[in-house]
Amino acid sequence: MIRRAFLALALGGTSLMTSHAMADAYPVKPLRVVVPYATGGGSDIVARALGEKLSKKLGQPIIVDNKAGASGIIGTDAVAKAAPDGYTLLVTITQSVLTNQFLYNRLPYDPRKDLTLVNVIADAPLVLVTTPSLPVRSVKELADYGRAHKGKVSYASWGVGSYPHLAGAYFSKVTHGEMVHVPYKGEAPMLQDLLGGQVQWAVASVLSAKPYIQSGKLKAIAVTGTQRSQVLPDLPTFAEAGMDDNAFKVLGWIGLLAPVGTPAPVVARLDEEVRALIQTQDMQARFSALGLRPVGSTPAQSQAIFAREWPVWKTLVAESGAKLD
Score class of each variant (00 low, 15 high):
134 L>V: 09
283 M>I: 13
78 A>P: 04
286 R>E: 13
310 W>M: 05
255 G>R: 10
253 W>P: 03
126 L>Q: 15
75 G>I: 04
5 A>Q: 05
304 A>E: 01
20 H>I: 15
142 L>F: 06
225 G>R: 11
215 S>F: 04
260 V>W: 03
226 T>W: 07
286 R>C: 08
67 K>P: 00
285 A>I: 07
197 G>C: 01
93 I>S: 13
9 L>E: 02
186 G>Q: 06
16 L>T: 09
110 D>G: 03
42 G>C: 10
80 A>I: 02
175 T>S: 12
180 V>C: 01
201 W>G: 02
253 W>Q: 14
63 I>P: 01
35 V>R: 02
248 F>V: 08
178 E>H: 14
272 E>W: 15
284 Q>I: 07
256 L>R: 03
73 I>Y: 00
125 P>A: 15
124 A>R: 12
210 K>P: 00
54 L>H: 09
52 E>D: 11
65 D>S: 09
11 L>R: 10
153 V>D: 04
285 A>E: 11
288 S>P: 00
128 L>C: 01
257 L>G: 03
74 I>V: 12
316 L>G: 02
148 A>N: 09
82 A>K: 03
79 V>T: 00
84 P>H: 12
220 A>Y: 05
201 W>Y: 15
294 P>H: 12
65 D>W: 08
214 Q>T: 14
202 A>Q: 07
117 L>Y: 15
298 T>H: 02
270 L>Q: 12
233 P>T: 11
162 S>R: 09
210 K>A: 11
27 P>I: 14
204 A>C: 07
261 G>R: 10
185 K>A: 13
60 Q>S: 06
216 G>M: 07
172 S>G: 05
165 H>I: 09
245 D>I: 12
246 N>A: 14
155 Y>P: 00
139 V>C: 00
224 T>L: 01
81 K>Q: 12
132 P>A: 08
